[in-house]
Design a protein around this nucleic acid. Structure first.
Length: 588
RNA sequence: GGAGCUGUGGUGUAGUUGGUUAACAUAUCGGCCUGUCAAGCCGAAGAUCGCGGGUUCGAGUCCCGUCAGCUCCGCCA
């Protein structure tokens, strides 16, 4: 049978009386004895086929044999449905196709779940039979959304003279950052390639090459534990520019993202996006990716805590820490048990404990109220805008912990019905370093190629932890959707940073020598950003997990239920690579 | 590495304080049926209750272990 002439879902009243050839899959079948209705589905949607016994028994017998997911090709006539048989809930509901001839191209086993939207099936099954899952219209729509987003991105970047350049997938393992996926080399048996965590070094080298404006829609790999918004392989929209100021880059990114939301979500996004320093984000929201759609901001209580007799608070302050408070409006509905559970939760987030107080008309009902003068309690109530019926939570610890613990608790008590208007936010002025307690040294907060702010350069020697970086994250309603920085473009500053990170000159040369060398050959000032494409698509489609917008995702244990990857390999393969597998350690 | 939740016909669920034959819906198969679109009516088949061990006269149910999926903490420059 010849190629199809039309897509099922595109047939409308305009095609009445036309002869059409259609191909697709058998969906629902309604067999009335002498009359059979078939919903024929293809990529575009579905249309109702009609088989009438009175029009010939041979075709009708064939129609009776049709089952779910059989693949068929039909020729027939588009007919207007009579008024009372119109189905207003279908785009093709005003017409149907009276079939004149049919070929069964393939049969099908009964699928393990329904091929329709809004199914409630174990994700196990969907992943094992992902090719069937992707037949469902809602999954197809996600693939289409993703396609359109990527096309918009490529068109936008092209319009601004950006060049898409491919970078290696087999590359070199570098220290720092996430755990690498390693690929054993055969020609250099015993040595390994790494899959890129991002094309970071290559895109900087492309700037040295004079590309000036680079982008790539690129797969990245990180061998870390998974989450709803983290897969071991994921896609970034990777961007790097030369001679761009931070503001240039922000404007470019905002235009890109706002364009996606306008075209794919029908929403005008106000620009420029708000900017918030990291310190402020932490102090007010207890996270570097704040959801600013609701208040419940953290309150700094160092001054008031200092006036108390509560040892926990005082010693936290004496050790240079901070006391922070979070007000739970109407928290009095929480039981003592609820607060105990919250305390456990706070411990999981790293706090040593959680102090709390029920706000009542006479004062606080709290195990710690005895350590506070009435005046101080009043002061705290005022500062936290506490009202009778609230519960106040306090954490006293190192500043970072006090903030993040309450930040986590804040999100737990987020209002249920948050407005849908998206709030994009730049978080800026990240610290260049943080202190790695385990290894007793500084670590890059972003990555080791991030430029410090010029005015903070002198602090590199005196107080490295207070040096601010030219680094930024793009945040949407509590989700980090991208991040980047301006890079160091002179080799002496880069060598200095490596030094502070505890990389000896030799190690720096060994691991990154090619970059240091490149920086000596006229490297332009440059910087960039990477956006998490999977997260962007999930936000656009309203999904909680990026698995929904990745055609073939991995499970929480990083395995693929369809292919069974990862899997054992043959002894011969291992021998070629000179790899020996150690027996699993038995518990003794 | 850690915590929590889930696992019962193909699928989604129910299953009481441990007690006879594991229930319901849907899908599947067969019959009837010419205007359905969640088609309808009648009938049939379909489960070693994730897996292993234990307690018990007796385990889907209680205990221990284990596997898988999901969510979170740690981790993710």
């Amino acid at each position: 049978m010849a190629q199809k002439t039309h897509y099922c879902g595109k047939l409308t009243i305009d095609y009445v009386n036309r002869e059409v050839k259609l191909t697709g899959w058998v969906g629902k079948r309604r067999d009335h004895g002498g009359l059979i209705f078939i919903d024929l589905r293809d990529r575009s949607g579905q249309v109702q086929l009609v088989f009438d016994q009175r029009q010939g028994t041979e075709l009708f017998t064939l129609a009776e044999s049709l089952r779910s997911e059989y693949v068929i090709a039909v020729e027939g006539t588009v007919l207007r449905r009579s008024e009372e048989t119109v189905n207003p809930s279908l785009p093709t509901g005003e017409i149907e196709v009276r079939v004149g001839s049919m070929e069964v191209l393939n049969t099908s086993k009964t699928p393990p779940f329904y091929i329709e939207d809004n199914i409630n099936v174990d994700e196990n099954l969907r992943l094992r039979y992902r090719y069937l899952d992707l037949r469902r219209p809602e999954m197809l729509r996600r693939l289409q959304l993703r396609h359109r987003a990527v096309k918009l991105i490529r068109d936008y970047m092209d319009r601004y003279d950006f060049l898409e350049v491919e970078t290696p997938i087999l590359t070199r393992s570098t220290p720092e950052g996430a755990r690498d996926f390693l690929v054993p080399g055969r020609q250099q048996a015993g040595e390994f390639y790494a899959l890129p965590q991002s094309p970071q070094l290559f895109k900087q080298l492309l700037m040295v090459s004079g590309i000036e404006r680079y982008f790539q829609v690129v797969r990245c790999f990180r061998d870390e534990d998974l989450r709803a918004d983290r897969q071991p392989e994921f896609t970034q929209v990777d961007i790097e520019t030369s001679f761009f100021s931070m503001d240039n880059l922000f404007a470019l990114t905002e235009g890109l993202v706002a364009g996606l939301w306008k075209e794919l979500h029908g929403r005008e996004i106000k620009r420029p996006f708000t900017k918030m320093p990291y310190q402020e984000a932490m102090n007010r929201y207890g996270t570097d990716k704040p959801d600013v759609r609701y208040g419940m901001e953290l309150v700094g209580l160092d001054e008031q805590a200092g006036k108390s007799e509560f040892k926990v608070f005082k010693s936290a302050l004496e050790n240079g820490g901070a006391v922070k408070g979070l007000r739970l409006p109407g928290g009095s509905r929480l039981s003592r048990k609820d607060l105990d559970d919250l305390t456990l939760l706070a411990r999981q987030f790293g706090a040593k404990g959680l102090a709390w107080a029920y706000v009542e008309s006479e004062g606080w009902r709290s195990p710690i109220s005895k350590f506070f003068d009435e005046a101080v309690i009043k002061e705290i109530n005022t500062k936290m805008e506490a009202e009778t019926g609230d519960v106040l939570l306090f954490v006293a610890d190192r500043w970072h912990i006090s903030c993040t613990v309450l930040g986590h608790l804040r999100t737990k008590f987020a209002p249920a019905n948050l407005q849908e208007e998206p709030h994009f936010l730049w978080v800026v002025d990240f610290p260049l370093f943080h202190y790695n307690e385990e290894e007793q040294r500084y670590d890059s907060d972003h990555h080791p190629f991030t430029a410090p702010r010029e005015e903070d350069m002198p602090l590199l020697d005196s107080d490295p932890l207070s040096v601010r970086a030219k680094a930024y994250d793009l945040v949407l309603d509590g989700v980090e959707i991208g991040g980047g920085s301006m890079r160091i473009h002179d080799s002496s500053t880069q060598a200095k940073i490596f030094g502070l990170l505890g990389l000896s000159e030799e190690e720096g040369r060994e691991k990154f020598g090619f970059l240091l060398e490149a920086l000596t050959y006229g490297a332009p000032p440059h910087g960039g950003i990477a956006l998490g494409l999977d997260r962007l698509i999930a936000l656009l489609s309203g999904d909680d997990s990026i698995r929904q917008v990745i055609p073939f995702p991995k499970t929480a244990t990083a395995s693929c239920l369809m292919t069974g990857a990862p899997s054992a390999v043959s002894d011969q393969q291992l021998e070629e690579l000179r790899i020996k597998i150690e027996a699993k350690k038995e518990d003794k």
